[in-house]
């Protein structure tokens, strides 16, 4: 009689020829591309990133160059028309993509890093540390962004992306910190955290290697949300003229367009392109966000429906 071979028949249908890392990446890739929302959003994001990287390289002309065609609608020479001073709108949009994207992504990243550190530390350590960090978080949460920005911009001698970035980070990190704190609080009492403690792991290691990997989905969602917020905030601040109006970005385009009464003059081609870019990029990021929710929470995933008719409904009643 042979020994039952249960020990070899692993319950999972996956074979183990592949290393587990490759396997996980493959699963993630499949999830990401199968999910239409994420695929769509990623497509948009990738498009804009490519434009930001390669646009200014391909189009070498100076976006600030004046030309005699003042306020002309889109034509063959100027694909998106020109501004009040004859600058090519298309060039400006393309070049401005790099600035806007870079600023938005960097400030979003910095704000997220701060919120991760504060939220996780407060949630894990509890006690006095948590009380202090929570208080700080709550203070920053109620700070009004726009008035603060205007005040700071008025006082700071340097007007430019750094100021705007600074203000955005200050007003953007606290919400994520709150979310992560409560998530960490619930993670803290999970048994695998206790098991790590019983193994002798250090707190830092537990926070960043045991708890944080379980919260990646939230952090990613928060990162994307903060980036959207940053892009919108920065555009808004630049529109108010609080940025460096000599650089070319979507926001400064709004500034100049507003200053020169573009709408009154009917120059829709000046306002629409940057606005559309912001809207589309924001939508793309939002789609990725929804998709992440579905990936992270299996219950939200829509399983493909049953392909068989529900026999119970079509059968004749016997009685």
């Amino acid at each position: 009689m042979s020994i039952p071979s249960f020990e070899v028949n692993l319950p999972s249908s996956e074979t183990s020829e592949f290393s587990s890392q490759v396997h996980r990446l493959r699963d993630m890739w499949r999830l990401v591309t199968l999910n239409r929302k994420v695929a769509f959003g990623l497509g948009i994001l990738v498009f804009f990133v490519l434009v930001a990287i390669f646009g200014p390289i391909i189009l070498t002309k100076d976006p600030n160059a004046f030309s005699p065609d003042i306020l002309s609608p889109p034509s063959a020479t100027h694909w998106l028309g020109t501004t009040q001073t004859g600058q090519d709108v298309f060039l400006q949009v393309v070049v401005g993509t790099r600035v806007s994207l870079l600023l938005g992504f960097i400030t979003g990243l910095v704000a997220t890093i701060i919120s991760v550190v504060v939220g996780l530390a407060g949630g894990y350590f509890g006690g006095v540390i948590d009380d202090v960090l929570s208080m700080v978080t709550n203070v920053f949460l109620v700070l009004p962004g726009l008035p603060l920005a205007i005040v700071l911009a008025a006082f700071l001698p340097y007007k430019g992306p750094l100021t705007i970035g600074f203000v955005t980070v200050i007003t953007g990190w606290s919400w994520g910190a709150r979310v992560l704190r409560s998530q960490t609080l619930s993670m803290r009492s999970r048994e695998f955290v206790e098991a790590s403690k019983a193994s002798g792991e250090s707190s830092m290691r537990i926070i960043f290697f045991e708890i944080l990997p379980n919260e990646i989905a939230i952090v990613a969602a928060e990162l994307l949300g903060t980036i959207i917020y940053a892009i919108l905030a920065e555009t808004g601040l630049e529109y108010l003229g609080l940025g460096d109006v000599t650089t070319v970005s979507w926001g400064t385009m709004f500034y100049w367009a507003g200053n020169n009464d573009a709408i009154l003059l009917g120059a829709w081609w000046w306002i629409l392109p940057p606005g559309l870019c912001i809207a589309v990029l924001g939508a793309g990021l939002a789609f990725i966000n929804f998709g992440i929710d579905e990936i992270a929470n299996p219950r939200l995933r829509k399983e493909p429906g049953p392909k068989v008719d529900k026999i119970s409904k079509t059968r004749e009643v016997a009685a």
């Binding site: 399983e303 429906g305 049953p306 068989v308 529900k310 026999i311 119970s312 016997a318 009685a319």
Partner: peptide, 11 residues
């Protein structure tokens, strides 16, 4: 769904 009764009766 996704659980479906594919046959049988319960009298």
């Amino acid at each position: 769904p996704p659980a479906v009764i594919t046959g049988g009766e319960v009298l």
